[in-house]
Amino acid sequence: MNYSIKKDKNCLLVAIFGEIDISITDSLREDIDRALDNYGSGQLVFDLGGVDFIDSSGLGVILGRYKKVAGKGGKVFLAGAKPQVKKVLELSGLFNLMEEYSTAAEVIDKIS
């Protein structure tokens, strides 16, 4: 499995491992959306600590989930991005929409 999705306290935690490109984006998008529908969580946390690579297809999945969650008044957090992943996130402008944390544990502590 390249990612795990679980409810942690009052948020939905999506931990992704390895490389995020079009080989996983379709299933990642569907699985997160299903979990959001089931848990109805207003706080979505992406744990990117295990991610070695991301391209614009991956960013599209994050932005799409942000629109969904923010549209219902929720928030999305990005945690643990390694330098190469962070560079791409910075260029994309996603950090202007979502708060950045160094670890997922830190986000969950803060928001629960």
């Binding site: 079009i22 690579f53 614009s56 297809s57 330098p83 560079k87």
Partner: peptide, 20 residues
């Protein structure tokens, strides 16, 4: 290494566009 990471993103974008 960081230049290689940048090259990989560029390649990924071009090839993904061709496919998608």
């Amino acid at each position: 290494l960081s230049e290689l990471e940048e090259l990989k993103v560029a390649v990924s974008e071009a090839v993904t566009n061709a496919i998608v």
